[in-house]
Amino acid sequence: MLSTRSIKTASKLWAIDTAISMIDLTTLEGADTPGKVISICAKAIRPDPTNLEVPHVGAVCVYNDMVKVARQFLDSSGGEQIPVAAVSTAFPSGRASIEVKQRDTEDAIANGATEIDMVIDRGAFLSGNLSKVLTEIVCIKEICGDRAHLKVILETGELVTYDNVRKASFLAMAAGADFIKTSTGKVQPAATPAVVLVMLEAVRDYYQLTGKKIGVKPAGGIRTTKDAIKQLVLVNETAGPEWLNPELFRIGASALLNDLLMQRMKMKSGQYSGRNYVSLD
């Protein structure tokens, strides 16, 4: 039902710009090089070089060892306000000792990351060892302190059931997460609307219980403007309109940005542009 709400004209333009400002522009590949990272950082600052009205994205999301490269480039190129998010704690599997995960996080923050995207220990969760999951999040949160925002990745594709998603959401929020995030992007299915709905209900209920607003970040599988707008409608009618900003809602994506830009150009000019009118990365 919510997927057929009609978003047009001014609302659509607002939605596109809001979605752009919510993107954690991401590159998480074994083949990432400084060149590639610099390239997405440039795109993060000015998504559409031909139109400076387009807002910058929410953050740049990279592997730990690329944090420094990203931070330096952003700082030297007018992107000081854009945070760098690092995927830490033995991303994506999380299969390492807590000492390694702590060190990983320390490293990222030392290199300039102000947002930490950690993964939960799904093995511990599925074997019923919830206290291990909780303790690890608390531990990483302590390291983050007020130096970095903590996003906790549930990897919903491995938790499988909605009951698990809700349970893990509450666990993460209780342990101190600033954001709960669906997926690493390495496991399918990722940010399905149903999973995002469950997580939005969880943050809404947590807010009602504690008065604390926790953010939500779907990641993986959101590739088109239509998908992104559906997500925004879901936010609007579930958690509520106060969640419709980058402080409380982010979208982890890479390909999505170009689709948003093409739609934006179309709305402004009335003509469809082609893939070659937006930059590759």
């Binding site: 009609s6 001014a10 607002w14 925004l232 419709l244």
Partner: peptide, 9 residues
């Protein structure tokens, strides 16, 4: 903020 749903008759 402008996120009104447009009439779609």
């Amino acid at each position: 903020m402008n996120f009104e749903y447009s009439p779609a008759p």
